[in-house]
């Protein structure tokens, strides 16, 4: 992997991470992401690069593509990122609920449904507008 590929994947993981998590990204996660993408044979895919270059909404584009049965590599890259952060204690509370929050949970679930609907509309438009294959 040459330096430009390294830099591309470095920028990619930082951009994807910021789209899903609001905290600083550890350097070792960046390094592992780059190696994992390569290990899974996803380094040739340019969908994420296009998202980064045009500063698009990664969550919306990924979801719209996933529902269309496309964008498999992008989904896999985001899954890699989720795996890599889930095994770190900083992200424990993102994945595991340890405080009873019935009312708040219902509100969050309803909000996330609304968010999904909105992201689907937005993602569909972005997919069409930017010609994601």
């Amino acid at each position: 992997m040459d330096r430009s590929d390294q830099a591309r994947l470095d920028a990619e993981v930082r951009y994807l991470h910021d789209a899903f998590f609001s905290r600083p990204l550890a350097a070792e996660v960046v390094d592992r992401y780059i190696r994992a993408v390569r290990h899974c044979g996803l380094d040739e895919d340019r969908t994420a690069e296009k998202i980064v270059r045009s500063r698009l909404d990664a969550e919306a584009v990924e979801f719209a593509l996933r529902l269309r049965g496309r964008g498999v590599a992008l989904t896999r890259k985001i899954r890699i990122l989720f795996y890599l952060v889930e095994v770190r204690s900083d992200y424990y509370a993102d994945f595991v609920n340890e405080t009873p929050l019935f009312g708040r949970a219902l509100w969050r679930l309803a909000a996330s449904l609304a968010r999904t609907a909105w992201k689907l509309v937005k993602g569909s438009w972005l997919v069409w507008r930017h010609g994601f294959g």
Partner: peptide, 20 residues
């Protein structure tokens, strides 16, 4: 992360659903 993307939700919404 093994199951998150099986939900018909965005990744961030699936994270909330899985958690709660």
């Amino acid at each position: 992360s093994d199951v998150l993307f099986g939900f018909p939700l965005t990744a961030r919404a699936a994270l909330e659903w899985s958690k709660y």
